[in-house]
Nucleic acid binder design. Structure first.
Ligand SMILES: [Mn+2]
Ligand SMILES: [Mn+2]
Ligand SMILES: [Zn+2]
Ligand SMILES: [Zn+2]
Lengths: 154, 154
DNA sequence: ATGCTAATCGAAAATCTTTTTCAATTACAC
DNA sequence: GTGTAATTGAAAAAGATTTTCGATTAGCAT
């Protein structure tokens, strides 16, 4: 009933008028058949077994493409980040403006029900969570309307 | 009523029997008085105004320390990550084992109430969120009990 | 005060990760 | 087949973070 993941990704490329090259096929196969989430370097290493000539640059480019189209997803770690803030309270999360970078902290994440339910279902002992929200702050929203723009930062 | 943030951090260092050096004071002052979250490089640049000799290495080391003690918090971005997984569904999050790295996806994050409430309170137009849970998977929990261990990966 | 010592520092080099450049190659629409 | 824009990989650049190691220093014990 369900279409193979790799087939879906291939069709996705075609739909977006992108070429289905041998390097990309090798990468697609690895991601589609992987049991775990993989880093670009890991994907490169594995995909090279099928297509030894494959460059790491192509892995990065293909991952960007697949992420953009939604066929691949980033998995975040607690320490895969690059910015720090003084903790006002014990526990806090942030709402970061995707346009100007301004952030606002909040503490009431209320994830306990979700966490309890997942612990029950999966048997994991959950002891940490990363929750960050992104969007346009009021200032940037206003400015965007005024300029008729909708650009992202960077 | 509330104690200044920098004082808290200083006391924290003392409590943990760490030295309160001039380089650390400079870093503490910057973080405590910052309105935004700052990258290590930004903190370095700013703190150098107070203590020009300051090395970037010390910034990294101090941030590790303060994070460990809970006086500083990481702020995550949507793209500050290094691992990818094929998306099974449109929307998904992950439960990652902090010991072996094994991950499990889930989709029912149910953040709408929180998001709606924050949009109302802050005026942000929230359009993206990062939610990842970390903990020990059943296998690793069992193994830990068997070995009487409690170590983290890496 | 003075000395002791473990903690800490910073420069430099080593490691990694990711991006940019650019000339050569290739998928694929016609 | 041919033409052309998309794609590729080597190499270099750019960035971020960690390791090394000899010099310095905070904080405690005389
Ligand atoms: Mn929370
Ligand atoms: Mn979600
Ligand atoms: Zn903004
Ligand atoms: Zn595990």
């Amino acid at each position: 009933m369900t279409m193979p993941v790799s087939t879906e990704m291939r069709d996705g490329l075609r739909e977006h008028r992108r070429k289905l090259t041998r390097p990309r096929q090798a990468i697609l196969d690895i991601i589609a058949s992987a049991a775990h989430h993989l880093t670009p370097a890991e994907i490169h290493k594995l995909a090279r077994k099928k297509y030894p000539h494959l460059g790491l640059v192509t892995v990065y480019r293909t991952l960007d493409l697949l992420t953009e189209f939604g066929y691949v997803q980033r998995v975040h770690f607690a320490d895969g980040c690059h910015s720090y803030a003084a903790s006002a309270q014990e526990h806090a999360h942030h709402l970061v403006c995707s346009s100007c970078g301004k952030a606002q902290a909040f503490a009431d994440c209320d994830l306990e029900p979700l966490i309890a339910s997942l612990q029950r279902k999966t048997g994991y002992e959950i002891n940490l969570h990363v929750l960050e929200l992104m969007g346009k702050c009021p200032d940037c929203s206003t400015r965007a309307v005024a300029l008729g723009k909708n650009g992202k930062r960077k």
